[in-house]
Amino acid sequence: MKITDAGLHPYPAGDSTVARMALEAAELGFDSAVVIGGAAHRPPGIEVLQGAVISAASVKEVLKRVRDPAVRRADLVYVDAGEIAFNRAIVSIKEVNVVRSIHATRRNAFDHVAARTAAERDVAVNISMAPIIHLRGTKRQRALQRYADILSLQRRYGFPLTISSDARSILGQRSVRETRGLCALFGMTGAEVTEALSSVGRILEPHRPVKVVE
């Protein structure tokens, strides 16, 4: 079971390099991290996975973008959530691993139909710590409401969750203990946080029936 930060945005998108963020993640108690849009090299210390984010307005565009060589090379493919029909469609795309930016969507944009499909196809929903850390007032309240709603759907349908700091700097990274505390704000238990932090490994290597090789 590897504790993974499911989203880091290193230099040049942020102000910290992949190596420095990996060093900090290791100190903060993580075993691996998914780097979005970073350099291709993999620093020593913790396992660094490559992620690709698709921000699209239509499902057709997502289907086109998943065939992109840069996206195909990535270990994990993220898609930014959108309207209800869009979310229902993207969770059924084979190449999509994680639906992200759920806090920025409208209420009920990720509904029970999308949740059931996500559970069947092992597509995860990402919970980002950045809105809880950086936003204030009604915007943060709205993000916490979305996360609580996603959590209730996850408990009912059992789709995987991932947790990311979405840090663009080492100053935005948080430890496993702090992540646990921040997730408790919307009712996530310690066991659920641990499971969500370790779900990236399960998405990459899902449980399959044993094949007998002669």
Binding site: Y11, D15, S16, T17, A19, R20, M21, L23, P43, S169, I170
Partner: peptide, 10 residues
């Protein structure tokens, strides 16, 4: 002033 966080290797 802007800050950047690197390692020796970087």
């Amino acid at each position: 002033q802007k800050s950047l966080f690197f390692t020796e290797a970087d």
